[in-house]
Computed example of a mutant assay.
Amino acid sequence: MKRRTKIVVLGSALLLTAGVASAATASETPRQRTTASDAPRQATAADSPRQREAAALTGTAELYRSAGDDITFSFDAHLAAEDKADPSKATGTFEFSHYLNGEGARAEVKVDCLLTGGKVAVVSGVVTDSDLPGAEGKRVGVTVHDLGRHDRLGYSWASTGSPAETKELPKCVSSAPFEKVAKGTGDFTVLPWQPAL
Rank of each mutant, 00 (worst) to 15 (best):
D83R: 10
D146L: 02
A121Y: 07
A121G: 11
L169G: 05
V9Y: 09
R3E: 13
A81P: 03
A182D: 07
G186C: 04
T143N: 11
H145G: 01
L57D: 11
Y155H: 08
L10H: 00
V127C: 09
L15G: 03
T5E: 05
Y155R: 04
T116V: 10
T93M: 09
T60E: 10
D70Q: 07
A135P: 02
G19Q: 06
A36G: 11
A18I: 00
E168M: 02
Y155S: 03
S174W: 08
L153E: 03
A164R: 05
A81F: 04
L169Q: 12
S74Y: 08
G154N: 04
T35E: 06
A21I: 09
A54K: 07
A176D: 08
A45P: 04
A176T: 08
S27D: 12
G125R: 07
T72F: 00
R52S: 14
S124L: 13
P87A: 12
G137P: 02
A56S: 15
D131L: 03
K138A: 14
K84I: 11
G141D: 03
L132D: 04
A105T: 01
A54L: 12
G141K: 13
T25M: 07
L169R: 07
G137M: 06
A158R: 01
E53C: 00
R152A: 14
T44Q: 09
R3Y: 11
V127F: 07
G92M: 08
T128V: 15
P192W: 13
V8H: 01
R106E: 09
G125F: 13
S66I: 06
A81G: 04
E62L: 05
L114C: 14
A176G: 06
H98V: 13
L153S: 00
A39T: 12
A45N: 06
L197P: 07
A39P: 04
A18C: 09
S66G: 02
L114A: 14
T128Y: 08
S175M: 10
P177I: 04
F94W: 15
D112R: 03
V123E: 05
L153A: 01
Y64F: 14
F188H: 11
R33N: 05
A61Y: 07
E82M: 06
A43Q: 15
F188L: 11
E62V: 01
T44M: 07
G68H: 03
D151N: 14
D47L: 01
K84H: 08
E53D: 15
V109H: 03
T160F: 06
G102E: 08
Y99D: 02
T91R: 14
K110T: 12
G154Q: 00
V142C: 05
A54N: 11
S66T: 12
C113V: 04
L63R: 01
E82P: 00
F75W: 09
A18L: 10
F94E: 10
